[in-house]
Deep mutational scan, measured.
Amino acid sequence: TTYYDVLGVKPNATQEELKKAYRKLALKYHPDKNPNEGEKFKQISQAYEVLSDAKKRELYDKGGE
């Protein structure tokens, strides 16, 4: 599973699309609303952290993490 899959976006997604997808999923899986989905929330946050940063995203796209 790639970070793009976690957020449900395509690899060519814009920053705005990433932000929108992250917010939607973060609300859905937030531990306050969904106590059993803490791990999913962490995955979503990690994916967004990497993909929202241009340098980290470039490194990730080249095969790094």
Rank of each mutant, 00 (worst) to 15 (best):
E49N: 09
Y48A: 01
K24V: 10
G8T: 03
Y60V: 04
E49H: 09
N34E: 07
R23G: 11
A26T: 09
E49T: 07
G8D: 05
P11R: 10
V9I: 07
T2P: 04
D61H: 03
K19L: 15
D5G: 05
Y29C: 04
P35G: 08
L51P: 01
Y4V: 01
K10S: 13
T14E: 03
A47V: 03
F41T: 02
N36G: 13
V9W: 00
K56R: 13
K33M: 13
Y48F: 11
K42Y: 13
K33T: 13
K10D: 09
Q15P: 12
T1N: 14
K28W: 06
N34C: 09
K20G: 07
K40Q: 07
Y48D: 01
Q15V: 13
Q43P: 03
V6M: 08
R57N: 03
Y29N: 03
T2R: 05
R23P: 00
V6I: 15
K19S: 14
E37K: 08
F41M: 06
D61F: 02
D32L: 13
T1S: 11
Y4P: 00
E65W: 12
V9C: 08
Y22E: 01
E49Q: 08
G8M: 07
P11M: 10
A54Y: 09
E37H: 15
L7H: 00
D5V: 05
V50P: 00
L25Q: 05
Q15L: 14
E58A: 11
E39R: 07
K56Y: 06
S45V: 15
A47S: 03
P11L: 06
A13G: 02
G38S: 14
K62P: 04
K19A: 15
P35F: 07
V6H: 05
T2Q: 07
E58P: 04
K28G: 05
Q46Y: 09
P35L: 07
K56T: 11
K40A: 10
I44S: 01
K56Q: 11
K24I: 13
D53A: 04
E49F: 10
D61L: 03
F41N: 02
S52K: 13
Q43E: 14
G38V: 15
T1R: 13
D32V: 11
V50M: 05
V9E: 01
T2V: 06
D61V: 02
Y3N: 02
Y4D: 00
T14C: 04
D5A: 07
S45F: 11
G64R: 14
Q43A: 13
D61G: 03
Y4H: 03
R23Y: 14
G38F: 14
G63C: 14
V50R: 04
G64E: 14
Y60P: 03
T1I: 14
S45N: 12
K56L: 14
G38D: 10
G63V: 11
K28C: 08
T2F: 09
T1M: 14
K10C: 14
D61I: 02
P31D: 07
D32C: 14
Y60W: 03
A13H: 02
D53L: 03
L51D: 00
E39F: 08
Y4W: 04
L27E: 15
D53C: 06
K24D: 15
A13L: 02
E39G: 09
G8V: 02
F41A: 03
R23F: 14
T1H: 13
Y48M: 05
L27S: 13
N36Y: 11
L7R: 00
E49K: 09
A13D: 02
Q46V: 12
G63D: 13
Y3G: 01
E37V: 06
S52V: 07
V6N: 03
Y48I: 04
S45D: 08
F41K: 02
S52I: 11
S52M: 10
G64N: 13
Y22P: 00
A54N: 09
V50Y: 06
Y60I: 04
N34W: 07
N36E: 13
E49A: 12
L51K: 00
L25I: 04
N12D: 14
E49G: 07
A13M: 02
E16N: 07
K62Y: 08
S52R: 08
P31M: 06
K28A: 09
E39K: 08
N34Y: 09
K19Q: 12
P31Y: 06
L51A: 01
E16L: 09
D32H: 10
L18R: 00
S52A: 09
G38P: 11
A26L: 15
L7A: 00
A13Q: 02
R57K: 06
Y48W: 10
E58S: 07
V50G: 02
E37D: 12
D53V: 04
D53T: 04
K19W: 15
K40R: 12
N36S: 11
K40C: 10
K20I: 14
G8R: 05
Y48R: 01
D5I: 05
N34P: 06
K56M: 12
Q15M: 14
K56H: 06
E16I: 07
L27Q: 15
R57P: 02
S52W: 04
I44N: 01
N12S: 10
T2I: 05
A21F: 02
L7F: 02
V6A: 06
Q46F: 09
T14M: 03
R23W: 14
L25K: 05
N34H: 09
A54F: 10
A21H: 03
L7G: 00
S45L: 15
Y48K: 01
K24C: 11
Q46E: 15
F41G: 02
K40W: 11
V50E: 05
K20R: 12
Y22Q: 01
L51V: 03
Y4K: 00
I44D: 00
N12G: 08
P11I: 08
E39M: 08
G8A: 04
K56A: 10
K42G: 06
Y60N: 03
T14S: 11
G63Y: 15
S52G: 11
D32A: 11
E58I: 07
K42C: 12
L25H: 03
A54T: 10
Y22G: 01
T2C: 15
H30R: 09
V9M: 04
K40N: 08
L25C: 05
D61R: 02
A13F: 06
G64Q: 15
L7K: 00
K62N: 12
D32G: 09
V50H: 05
T14L: 04
K19R: 13
D5K: 06
K55S: 11
K19D: 15
T14V: 03
V6C: 06
H30M: 07
V50F: 10
A47N: 00
G64I: 15
E37T: 11
L25S: 03
R57Q: 03
L59E: 15
L7V: 01
V9Y: 00
K40D: 04
E17M: 07
K40T: 07
L7P: 00
V9G: 00
L27I: 12
N12R: 04
Q43H: 07
Q15A: 13
P35K: 09
G63Q: 14
V9T: 04
V50K: 03
G38I: 15
E49M: 09
L27T: 12
A13I: 05
A26W: 15
P35H: 08
R23A: 15
K56I: 05
Q15C: 11
A13W: 01
T1F: 13
L51R: 00
Q46W: 10
Q15D: 10
K40M: 12
K55N: 11
K28H: 09
D32P: 14
G63M: 15
A21K: 04
Y60E: 03
Y3E: 01
Y22W: 08
E39D: 12
A47D: 00
E58T: 06
E16T: 09
E17L: 05
G8H: 06
S52Q: 07
L59F: 09
K33I: 15
K20V: 14
K19P: 00
Q43S: 08
L59R: 11
R23L: 15
D53Q: 05
L25R: 03
R23T: 12
L18Q: 00
A54I: 14
K56C: 12
Y60C: 04
Y3V: 02
N34D: 08
Q46R: 11
K20P: 01
Y29E: 02
E39P: 06
N36T: 13
N34T: 05
P11D: 05
G8N: 08
K24H: 09
D5E: 11
K55T: 14
A54S: 09
L7D: 00
K56G: 06
N12F: 07
A21R: 05
D53E: 04
S45T: 15
L51S: 00
G64K: 10
Y60Q: 03
T2H: 09
Y29M: 04
N36W: 10
G63H: 15
Y22R: 01
N12C: 11
K19N: 14
V6L: 13
P35Y: 05
L59K: 10
F41I: 05
P11H: 11
P31V: 06
V6W: 12
R57D: 03
T14W: 01
L18C: 03
P11T: 08
L7S: 00
N36M: 10
K10H: 12
A54G: 08
A54P: 15
L18N: 00
G38E: 13
L59V: 10
T2K: 05
L18K: 00
R23Q: 15
Y3W: 09
R23E: 15
G63E: 12
K42E: 10
Q46S: 07
V9N: 00
A47K: 00
H30F: 06
G38Y: 15
N34Q: 07
Y22V: 02
D61S: 02
H30P: 04
L51I: 03
N36D: 12
